[in-house]
Computed example of a mutant assay.
Amino acid sequence: MLSYQHAYHAGNFADVHKHWLLVLLLEALSRKDKPWCYLDTHAGRGIYSLDSAMAMKTAEWREGVARLLETSGSAPESVQSYLRIVQSYLRIVQSNLRTVTEDVSYAREIHMYPGSPEFARRLMRQNDREVLCELHPQEIEHLKKHFHKYDNVHLHFRDGFEGVFAMVPPPEKRGLVLIDPSYELKQDYQRIPAYLEKLHKRWAGATVAIWYPVLTDERHQTLLKGVRESALDNVLRSEIRRKSEIRKKEANKGMVGSGMLILNPPWKVDLAITSGWSYLVNSLQLDDQQSVAVDWLKPEKST
């Protein structure tokens, strides 16, 4: 059994990047009246208490979502939907918090932070549907408690790779798959490109988002290489990296960035990402030379 639990890392800089992109993708799907289905291979617990012992042990949210909340007044339109959802879970408590770069005094406004399933639920319309797979016994119990009253959210205690593949294409025929494993198993970097090819053959019209960590050992390059060499095309990449001077002051230097691959991105979503990029870079104090808003890992083939 894998031991990873996201509660230690909820609301960190990687979550901000991942969930902002997720909101943009689901909003793009909602521009058409036809319903969509959201499928998540590794759902986690859905919503996280940032007052919990697990979250406070690392307090990674202080250098993630808290930084965006400090600058929310200057957020561009493409980031505002993400912030509105986050702000609906706030509780204001004045406190002094130490960041990795300086002592600052600001309003600690965060009480709960939504995970990917909760972001998706908040963006669902009446006829949209959500399918969540989770194999960790503690996490699935959290999902059951949180989502039990929602008829259009379906939970599956099963391996997410196998489960999602078995359930596509959904009746809606359009939608988004989020592949977001913990990468505790290093073979995930090798297996995902082949899995994407199989998934695409079964549901060619799906938008598929693949989150990956950017680590100091650059092992994510195996994933990128596999996708480049695959039969897939129309794959967008967005990747952030933190400034080296910030990373050096942190005890855990393993994850230095966050990446997302998007197969079949909705129309103009690349422009939406670009329009919010400077705000994200400045708020999260990113390395603007190594980070990339969007580029085409595999361009769409011309017909």
Rank of each mutant, 00 (worst) to 15 (best):
L215A: 11
Y212V: 11
A28N: 11
E197T: 12
G44D: 10
I240E: 09
D40S: 05
H111R: 15
Y89K: 04
Q285E: 15
R191E: 12
W203M: 06
D103M: 09
A272M: 10
K201C: 06
D151A: 15
E139Y: 00
R91M: 03
P170R: 01
D217G: 06
L155D: 06
F157E: 09
L263S: 03
V153S: 01
V214Y: 01
D287M: 03
V93Y: 02
A43Q: 06
H146R: 15
I210T: 14
D233E: 14
M124D: 06
S81W: 01
L199Y: 02
A59G: 14
L135V: 13
E245V: 08
V235M: 12
G226Y: 00
E102Y: 05
G115P: 07
Y89R: 06
E239T: 13
L2G: 12
I47E: 13
R67T: 07
S258D: 11
E134F: 08
V177N: 02
A120W: 03
F147I: 07
L26P: 09
Q5W: 02
V93M: 01
H220S: 14
P213S: 05
L97G: 11
V23C: 15
S72P: 00
G163A: 08
R237D: 08
L39T: 08
K248T: 12
S105N: 08
R122M: 10
K34A: 15
G276R: 03
G115A: 12
E239I: 13
D128H: 02
F157A: 12
T71C: 12
R84G: 09
L261G: 09
W211S: 12
V214M: 07
W203S: 04
G259D: 11
L135G: 08
E172S: 14
M54R: 13
K301C: 12
N96M: 01
T58R: 11
E141P: 00
I273R: 05
A204M: 07
F157M: 02
E245P: 01
S3M: 02
I273M: 15
E118N: 14
D295E: 14
K57F: 01
T216W: 00
W211T: 15
M112V: 02
K298A: 11
L22F: 04
V256C: 12
Y4K: 08
L22N: 03
G115F: 06
N282C: 06
V235I: 14
Y89C: 07
I246H: 07
G11K: 01
E118R: 14
D151P: 08
P171G: 07
M54H: 09
E250A: 09
P299D: 04
K186W: 00
S49H: 08
H156V: 07
V168H: 02
Y89V: 04
L236F: 02
V164W: 03
A14C: 13
K34Y: 05
G160R: 00
L185R: 04
M124W: 01
L25G: 05
Y183S: 07
K198F: 01
V168G: 05
A43G: 09
K249M: 06
A53P: 00
A10N: 08
H19F: 07
T274P: 00
P171A: 13
A120N: 11
E139L: 08
S302R: 10
H19W: 07
S238R: 03
L223A: 10
A7T: 11
V93C: 08
